[in-house]
Design a protein around this nucleic acid. Structure first.
Lengths: 337, 337
DNA sequence: TTGAAAGCGCTAACAT
DNA sequence: ATGTTAGCGCTTTCAA
C-alpha cells in the first residue's frame, strides 16, 4: 500500500503537500497538484481508513442494527435510512442482531470503539441493560421504538410507529364491522413490541365494551410457525372467533394457511388482520396495518445525522401514525353467509 | 474517552504496562494487572478501533455485499456467513448494493481503505469492471457466483450454485412429465445471473429436442411486478404454454397471481416452477429450485477466513448442486383435465 | 517485570 | 506555496 510518504518521495515534495493535493484542501500549486494526483493514481494510492479516522475521529459510517432478518418489515426501513444517509455521504452498515442482546451489546461496543459515528438501533426489546449502554455511549444513537428511561435523562432520539394504536385500529375496525368474538395472536408480552400491541388489543376491547374470551388469546413469537401453532390451538376450541387480530404478518400468514388447510374460509368463517403490511400480506390479500417503515428510517437517519454533525442537544421523540391497509381477508361478511 | 495514558497516570505505571495488562499479552505483575483493570473499568475505558487497526492492520470485520434487499433468496446465505464468522470472532457488516456497480465499487474502496479485512461479494453481475478492482484489491474477496477472468490470474475464490443446472433440472422435470409447450420468464440476459439461467433453459430444450416458441419467452428484472407483466404478456398470446419455468420465485409469484386473477388454474391450466425456494414459494405452494444458500454462505466465509488468516494461495472454486423442491404448482395434470 | 521510544498513515497548526 | 512538526491511541520492540 502506497502511503503519502512514498508519493512525496516520488514527487519530490513533502508529505504534507501530497496530503493537501490529495484532499484538495489547503494550498498547492496547480502544477504540483496535477503531478501528485498522477503519481498517486499510478501508484494505486488508497488512503488508510484507520489513519484518517484516528486523526479525525470520524468514519463517515453509521452502524445499523436490525433484529430479525427473516421479517419483511425492515426492508423499507433500511431503504429509508440508506437514502437519507447517502445524501450526507454517509454509509450505513447493517448488522443482524437476531434480537440477541449480546449481539446488540457487541455492536454498541463497536460504536464506542469508534467503528462508526453513530447508530440506528432497532430492537425487539429495549431494556435497562442495553439502554444504559446507549446512554453511556459517547456517540449518538437513534431508536426506532419509543423508549423513555425512568430517570428521564436519555441522550438518544426515538422515531417510532405507534403499534399500540395500530392494533387498536384493527380491533376498532372489526368492532365497527359488528364482530363481537375477536381473537388475538400476539408476541411475547415480556418484550416491548409484544406488550404494546397486546395493550392496544386490551384497550380497544375495553373502550368498546367487547368481552374478551381467554380461549381466543394466543401467544407466538412473531414467526410463521408460531402463527400456525396458535391457529391450531384456536381450531381446537369449541368455536372459532369471528375475527382475528394478529400482531404481525408472518404469524397472520401462518394462521391463514392453517385455516386454508383446515377448510376454514377467510374471511367468511374468520376475518383476519395482520400487522406490518408486508409484501407477503399484499400477495396473500391479507389485511394489515401499514407502518410507514421508510419514513421511520428516513426520520431516524436525519435525527442521527443532526447529532453527528451538530453535537448533543435535547432528546427528540417522533411518533408516526399507522394506517389500516384493508384487503380481502377482513372483508365484512355478506349477510346470511 | 479515556486512553491508556490516562489510565497509566492514574495507576502510576507506564502506558505500555497498561497496554500489556489490558490485552493480557506480555508481562505484567498480578498486582498491577488487577489494579489497572479496575481503573480501566472505573474510567470506562474503551480501546480505539482506529488506533488498534492502524497499528495492527486488522479489523476483525468482514464486509458483505448483497445486491437485493427485497429478495428473500439472501436470507439464509447471510445466516451461513454470520454463523461461520462468529466462530472466528469476526463480525460481518452488511451492505445492500441494490445491484448498483457504483455501490459495489464504493464498498470495494472501503475494503481497500482497510475498513474490513475481507469481503464476501454477492452480485448480479460480475464484469471486467468490478472484477478488476477485486483483483487489484490487496485484501481477500470471495464471490458467490462463478467467475473466471479470461486472463486466468484471479486472486479471489468462488462458491456458487449452478443455476444453469437448476433451470435445466426444472425444464427436464416438465419435459419428463410430458409437457411440450414450455414458456420461460427470465431476468436480464446481459447480466450473468440472467444469462446463466436462460442458457440452462435453452440447453434443456435443445438436449430434449423440445421446440421453443418465441412468444413464450419473456424477460423481467427478477421483481414480482415484472413477473406480473410477463404473465400478462403470455395471456395476450393466442394460447398459453402448458408449463412455465421462471428464473426466480418473485417473478414466479407475480405470474402466479396474475393467473389467479385471470381465472387460470395452477397447475391445471399452467404448471409453474420458480427458483430460490423462498419462504414465499413455500407459502404459496410454488415449486422451486433449492439453492443451498446457507451452505454457500458458510463455505464462502470459511474460504475467506482462510485467506485472511493464512494469506494468499491458489484460487479455489466450489460448485454446489441445486435441488428441485416440488410442490403443488408443478403437479402433473390429471388425465383428462 | 517495567519503561522508553518508535511508528502505523494521516492531518493541521505553524513556520518558512 | 511548501515544509516541519507534533500528535491521534495503540502496539511492540528494545533497553533497563
Amino acid at each position: 500500500m502506497a502511503s503519502i510518504y512514498e508519493i512525496a518521495l516520488e514527487a519530490g515534495v513533502s508529505p504534507s503537500t501530497v496530503a493537501r493535493a490529495l484532499r484538495g484542501t489547503g494550498y498547492c500549486s496547480q502544477e504540483n497538484r496535477e503531478r501528485i494526483l498522477e503519481i498517486a493514481k499510478r501508484m494505486n494510492y488508497i488512503p488508510s481508513h484507520a489513519a484518517r479516522s484516528l486523526k479525525s475521529n470520524r468514519t463517515n459510517k453509521v452502524l445499523f442494527c436490525i433484529p430479525d432478518i427473516y421479517n419483511p418489515f425492515y426492508f423499507r426501513m433500511i431503504r429509508g435510512v440508506s437514502d437519507v444517509l447517502e445524501q450526507y455521504d454517509y454509509l450505513p452498515l447493517l448488522c443482524f442482531t437476531k434480537g440477541h442482546v449480546e449481539t446488540e451489546l457487541k455492536m454498541l461496543r463497536n460504536l464506542q470503539e469508534g467503528y462508526g459515528d453513530g447508530m440506528v438501533f432497532v430492537s425487539f426489546n429495549f431494556s435497562p441493560q442495553n439502554i444504559s449502554v446507549v446512554n453511556n455511549c459517547n456517540r449518538p444513537v437513534v431508536l426506532t421504538n419509543n423508549y423513555q428511561s425512568p430517570t428521564g435523562d436519555d441522550k438518544f432520539d426515538c422515531v417510532y410507529i405507534d403499534t399500540f394504536q395500530g392494533i387498536y385500529m384493527a380491533c376498532e375496525h372489526f368492532i365497527q364491522e359488528g364482530f363481537t368474538h375477536i381473537g388475538y395472536i400476539g408476541g411475547n408480552v415480556t418484550v416491548q413490541t409484544g406488550r404494546e400491541r397486546f395493550d392496544g388489543f386490551l384497550r380497544a376491547m375495553r373502550d368498546y365494551n367487547v368481552n374478551i374470551d381467554q380461549r381466543y388469546l394466543c401467544q407466538g413469537d412473531f414467526s410463521m410457525a408460531s402463527g400456525e401453532a396458535a391457529m391450531r390451538h384456536l381450531l381446537a376450541q369449541p368455536a372459532l372467533p369471528e375475527a382475528l387480530v394478529v400482531a404481525n404478518d408472518l404469524m397472520a400468514i401462518g394462521a391463514y394457511r392453517v385455516c386454508l388447510d383446515a377448510g376454514i374460509r377467510v374471511p367468511e368463517d374468520i376475518a383476519i388482520i395482520g400487522m406490518d403490511d408486508s409484501e407477503l400480506a399484499n400477495c396473500m390479500n391479507l389485511s394489515s396495518v401499514q407502518m410507514c417503515e421508510e419514513e421511520i428510517g428516513g426520520k431516524a437517519a436525519k435525527l442521527l445525522m443532526d447529532r453527528i454533525l451538530h453535537g448533543p442537544r435535547e432528546k427528540k421523540v417522533v411518533r408516526l401514525q399507522p394506517q389500516l391497509a384493508l384487503r380481502a381477508s377482513s372483508e365484512k361478511r355478506k349477510i346470511g353467509s
